[in-house]
Simulated assay, not measured.
Amino acid sequence: MDETADPGPPHVRPENMRAGDVDREQVLDRLRIAHAEGRLDLDEFDERITATLAARTYADLRALTVDLPGQPPAPPAATPPPPEPGPLQDLDALQERDLRGAVIGWAGASVVTIAIWAMSCIATASFVYPWWIWVAGPWGLVLLSSWVRDRRQ
């Protein structure tokens, strides 16, 4: 038997788990209600507030409210951490951001070319062939087909 093997983390009982600020706030709320209801006098209320702020574990907090009606703070249930985004989720977000940037670029270029065309029509006082269609049209069709392809997947 290997004596250097790591036995793993020691098992911690739920009541011995460390309490957090949210847990302390819940106990403080219960103590405020108990004081308002007349269950705690001012001195005992002050002592319990001080002890609540110094409490480290759920057992410490439970001892401060065990003689009060209502539910004591329960240790959190062991929940697995949320799954991290997988490669497909990252790829979807990246493609959406890239498509959004491409559409913004297309819209900007289209507005500029249409403005130049409109100014040339005004300057010559005649209708000029709408050449801007050859800039905005094919580029827009490529973006539209990319968007449709992404939506189908």
Rank of each mutant, 00 (worst) to 15 (best):
E37K: 15
R18E: 08
D23T: 03
D29N: 10
V111T: 05
G137F: 04
W134S: 07
D98V: 12
V12I: 14
A36N: 05
M1S: 04
D21L: 05
Q153Y: 06
M119G: 06
I49G: 07
G86V: 13
G8N: 08
R18M: 05
P75D: 08
E47G: 03
L40R: 08
I33S: 12
G101H: 04
Q71C: 03
T52H: 09
L91D: 09
G140A: 00
Y58Q: 04
D2G: 07
D23K: 08
D150H: 12
T124L: 06
A19V: 12
Q95V: 15
I49E: 09
V142T: 08
G38P: 06
L53Y: 05
I49S: 07
F45H: 03
D2F: 04
P76N: 02
A55I: 00
L99W: 01
D46N: 13
W131P: 02
D67A: 12
A34K: 10
I104M: 10
R97S: 13
R151H: 14
D150P: 01
P80G: 10
P83A: 15
A125G: 13
D29P: 09
D23H: 14
P138H: 02
P81Y: 03
F127W: 05
D6W: 12
P80L: 14
R100N: 06
P138V: 02
I116P: 02
V148S: 01
V142Q: 11
E96C: 11
R97E: 10
R39Y: 09
D46G: 09
L40W: 00
D92R: 12
T124I: 15
P85N: 13
P7Q: 04
G20N: 13
T50E: 08
V12T: 15
A93L: 10
M119W: 07
G140H: 11
S110D: 05
G86H: 09
Q89P: 01
R24F: 15
A55C: 10
A118E: 04
A63Y: 02
E84C: 03
V22K: 14
A118M: 08
S126L: 08
Q89G: 14
L53Q: 13
T4C: 08
T113A: 11
R62S: 06
S145E: 07
M17H: 13
L64Q: 10
P10I: 01
V112G: 04
A107I: 13
L94W: 09
L91C: 06
P85D: 03
L28Y: 15
V12A: 12
I122H: 03
V142G: 05
L143S: 11
A78R: 09
S110G: 15
Q95F: 06
D90V: 14
F45D: 03
G38Y: 05
Q89Y: 10
D98T: 08
A51V: 03
L143R: 04
A77M: 15
P81Q: 14
P81C: 12
L28C: 08
T113M: 15
A59E: 08
D2K: 03
I33W: 07
M17A: 15
H11W: 15
A78T: 15
W139I: 10
P83K: 11
S120F: 01
T57F: 11
F45T: 02
D90T: 15
A74M: 10
L64R: 00
A123L: 01
T4D: 00
R152C: 01
A107S: 09
G8W: 04
D43F: 08
L28K: 13
